[in-house]
């Protein structure tokens, strides 16, 4: 997790670097340390350091780390020529290195030559069958080829060992959602909530899945998770507010006629509806009418 102070520091440095101030190297170090994805910025500022022989040599042995960082950023930005140049330099310096081999496989993957990339990855895996990065890359490669069930299989195999890896759980959850396997997706999001119980986005995603699954019990849980997402974001999340309204409506549909629904929950949805109206009035007054008609159709208009 990136802490608040670090986030602020990144923002300050980014601003400074973007406006031509110094500190590019510090910024790159921080990005690398926090594992942020700022590929365009890394590419731009990293290259400006690498293209300046004086600056480059002043880094000492860190120079090679920078080459690696820039290479990966360049692949992310599809500047394959730059990446290739970086890798070539690294190759010259460290012939036969596994770490450079990884980069070579990645550039094959970035180019889209799947078969070759797969071969490269599997030969790397032979040496170190537990390499986290490579295992993840193979899974994403399967996903990139549209082979979602293959990606699921690989991710499951990966999570068998590295079962505390949040990113993998999130990826798996998203794939399951895209395949409409909501029960499995729900499990993944539960896992994410467990690892970060105060992250409202996970609550929201879990609520979405539960709402989609349907059924009275799931809808009630979904409403609770929308409520917690609302609470954790301080009522600023529009999606969570809509979620509360929709869940209440759906629950009302299901329990229609039974009339044993306690009244205290109705307070929440009318509040959510009011909050929504207020937000729309402030931010998008033009769309207010369509909101009121939507809410009216849900019998929620205040």
């Amino acid at each position: 997790m990136v802490s608040k102070t670090e986030e602020a520091r990144v923002a300050v440095l980014e601003n400074q670097v973007d406006n031509g101030g110094g500190g590019a190297w510090e910024y790159l170090c921080l990005v690398r340390k926090l594992k942020l994805r700022r590929s365009d910025k890394v590419l731009k500022h990293g290259l400006s350091i690498l293209n300046d022989p004086g600056k480059r040599s002043s880094l000492g042995p860190e120079e090679w780390t920078l080459y690696e960082q820039v290479a990966i950023a360049a692949m992310d930005c599809q500047c394959l020529d730059v990446a290739k140049d970086c890798i070539k330099v690294l190759q010259k310096r460290f012939p036969g290195s596994k770490r450079v081999g990884k980069l070579e496989a990645m550039i094959l993957e970035a180019k889209g030559s799947w078969a070759e990339a797969e071969k490269a990855y599997s030969s790397l895996l032979e040496d170190n069958p537990l390499d986290q990065v490579i295992l993840k890359r193979t899974a994403t490669m399967a996903k990139a080829q549209g082979n979602l069930s293959g990606a699921i299989e690989l991710l499951n195999k990966y999570l068998e060992i590295y079962m505390a890896d949040q990113d993998a759980w999130r990826e798996l959850g998203e794939i399951y959602v895209s395949l409409q396997m909501y029960k499995q997706a729900a499990f993944c999001y539960e896992e994410l909530i467990l690892s970060q119980p105060t992250n409202p986005l996970y609550h929201l995603a879990y609520a979405d899945v539960l709402y989609t699954l349907g059924g009275l019990e799931n809808l009630q849980s979904a409403k609770k998770y929308y409520a917690s997402a609302t609470d954790l974001t301080g009522g600023k999340n529009t999606r969570a507010l809509f979620g509360i309204c929709l869940c209440t409506h759906a629950i009302g549909q299901l329990t229609k006629g039974r009339n044993k629904e306690d009244k205290d929950s109705s307070e929440l949805q009318s509040l959510a509806a009011t909050a929504l109206e207020k937000d729309y009035k402030r931010i998008a007054p033009a769309k207010l009418s369509s909101l009121t008609s939507t809410l009216k159709s849900l019998n929620l208009s205040s």
Binding site: S221, K223, K224, Y225, A227, S228, T230, D231, G234, G235, I244, S265, E267, L268, L271, A272, T274, A275, K278
Partner: peptide, 17 residues
């Protein structure tokens, strides 16, 4: 813990509104 959150969300929204 989630049932409690409904009340908390209510309080948050009430304040917001």
């Amino acid at each position: 813990a989630l049932p409690k959150f409904e009340q908390r969300a209510e309080a948050v929204l009430r304040k917001l509104v």
